[in-house]
Amino acid sequence: MRILVFLFALLGSLPAFAALNVFATVPEWGALAREIGGDKVNVYVATHALQDPHRIEAKPSLLAQARRAQLVVATGADLEIGWLPLVVRDAANPAIQPGQPGYFEAASVVSRLEVPQVVDRAHGDVHPGGNPHFQLDPYRIDKIAAALAVRMAQLDPANEASYRANQRAVAERWKAAIARWEKLAEPLRGVPVMVQHRSFSYLLAWLGMREVATLEPKPGVEPGSAYLSELLTRQQTQPARMILRAAYQNDTHSQWMATRAHIPAVVLPFTVGGSDEAKDLTGLFDDSINRLLKGLR
């Protein structure tokens, strides 16, 4: 009996159900959902910028949050393949099953780069759906924002006007910001870089930078010393100007290379929260470009 009273007390203490409960798999979609949803949504972000998005477990707290969600916002393209299908299934929440309006995959709205011709794990941890790290392309973010606003309006028609207005405001701001970033990043055009993992393909493609090597011999595979030495030799003939890694990645290999090749190792926030400056999506791009420009000096 006492347990029942306790349970009811708990149920009563839950946040108001008036707001749309959003479960975002990664910080960038959490930030986007907040910008479009404003005070009409409660956003839970399942991971943070210092976690490797490929290596998350379906831990109990995620199940509890997915159970209460009305909308799951995921990257898709197999980024969350190791944990999200399990969380969505075990959360006993029919509203967020794939195919339902409550399940939104950003990858379904945008095209992907680096879609493999051959899907074979001998080539490392390949994603059949292409490179899933498209959050570093502002044009794609813009498209995703539009689709997400539609989805939120579909789930919560009462606040449709608010979602649409917020999305329009975001799009306006975004347009101006993109123009500013592109002007700012002019010196980066054509700059050759090495990357730890192919985390920045979209950013580099957008800014016209050139990726000349990856420190991982294959996606998700740690480099051996022979491979790193080969890269160092290659640096003599095709010099890269800097080495890029995401905030969550270990610095061992990029530091090794930076010291020997005498080029800077630049840490990019990769997602919202990856640096002190990357507080939101605008901050993410501001800081990424600033750090790249600093690396150029």
Binding site: S111, G129, Y139, K143, A146, A149
Partner: peptide, 24 residues
């Protein structure tokens, strides 16, 4: 990228139809 951009700039496309375009 260029191609994707120019597709994106096609006028008079509502958000709904954009959302419905399958990418693969």
């Amino acid at each position: 990228e260029k191609l994707a951009r120019s597709e994106g700039q096609q006028p008079a496309r509502s958000a709904e139809t954009q959302a419905a375009v399958p990418s693969a």
